[in-house]
Design a protein around this nucleic acid. Structure first.
Length: 290
DNA sequence: CACTTGACCTGTCCGC
DNA sequence: TGCGGACAGGTCAAGT
């Protein structure tokens, strides 16, 4: 569920909260949440100071002073939550975090910094992963090699956007939007939201999308993602930011999770169908299959 | 190569 | 109340 806006929200939070902190200890469950644990994780992490937190597509990159980087994919239910040594979650200490005491049953990795603050990598469904590697090798991993361009970069043009779809003609526009090798960072929420904005039915074949419709989709996708970043992302189920707080984009969603509600544009009832193996929200009245 | 489907997991919800 | 099954959806491997 964390898509580009959610991962970007986490990145901004971590940038504020952990840059400059030095790792004192790491405890991990030694399964695929940290698949290269057999390399000496402790040796490369202990004493390392966080120097930057970057993002590429839905992947977070935590750069360390040792010229190593932690590369983390949250997949569906991953969370990265920071707690200072003062944070208290016991009775009589109200807070606005969605989650309580940490570590909890879904904690896969616990980083403790030298000031006794903590960063917890939680992942209920264990689809996420963390890897430690030299910073200079990060661009060489398979994921980075095949992932498409960042849709919110200032120099990403509508012409590039259209060109990226040129090798896909028969598949649905929704399947193409979800394909990370075409455009980076789009997931189920913002695919449905941007297709509604562009009045495109998710099952429209890519080859049947006109140039003007592509232009509209480009504009809508960027607008929707920028708004979502503004709102701290979407909390559908599990997502929380680096302080454990929910995002509020779902309050602004037009179709996602709104099956049965009236379309904000034409008033017809919003449907939920299945496209590209995903639950898909659509107004069949004003989003045209053609 | 283009494209689709199933696997990976576990918590939640729904019907019986 | 308990229990089975469907469902949630990011990515990769394996299938057509």
């Amino acid at each position: 569920m964390p898509e580009l806006p959610e991962v970007e929200t986490v990145r901004r939070g971590l940038n504020r909260l952990i840059v400059g902190r030095t790792i004192a200890s790491v405890v991990h469950d030694n399964d695929k949440s940290f698949p290269n644990a057999q390399v000496d994780v402790q040796h490369f992490l202990l004493g390392a100071t966080v120097v930057d937190v970057r993002r590429r597509a839905k992947v977070l990159i935590i750069d360390l002073s040792t010229n190593y980087s932690l590369v983390i994919h949250l997949k569906m239910t991953g969370q990265l939550v920071f707690r200072s040594s003062q944070d208290s979650f016991g009775a009589g200490h109200p807070n606005d975090s969605l989650i309580g005491d940490l570590p909890d049953t879904s904690t896969r990795v616990t980083f403790t910094f030298t000031d006794d603050s903590h960063l917890y990598f939680n992942d209920q469904r264990k689809f996420g992963w963390a890897r430690l590697m030299p910073t200079q090798e990060v661009p060489n991993i398979d994921f980075m090699q095949k992932v498409g361009p960042e849709p919110l970069e200032a120099d990403f043009t509508v012409e590039q956007f259209i060109e990226r779809f040129s090798r896909r003609k028969k598949t649905s526009i929704k399947a193409a939007l979800l394909d990370q090798s075409i455009i980076a960072g789009v997931g189920n929420i913002y695919a449905d939201e941007s297709l509604w904005g562009a009045k495109l039915h998710p099952q429209r074949r890519v080859g049947d999308v006109s140039k003007n419709e592509f232009k509209k989709l480009y504009t809508e996708l960027r607008a929707v993602m920028n708004l979502a970043i503004d709102k701290g992302g979407s909390t559908d189920r599990n997502y929380v930011d680096a302080q454990g707080k929910k995002g509020s984009y779902m309050d602004f969603a037009r179709v996602f999770r709104r099956e049965g509600e009236p379309c904000p544009r034409c008033g017809a009832s919003i449907s939920k169908i299945r496209v590209a193996g995903r639950g898909t929200h659509v107004c069949t009245s004003c989003q045209v299959v053609q």
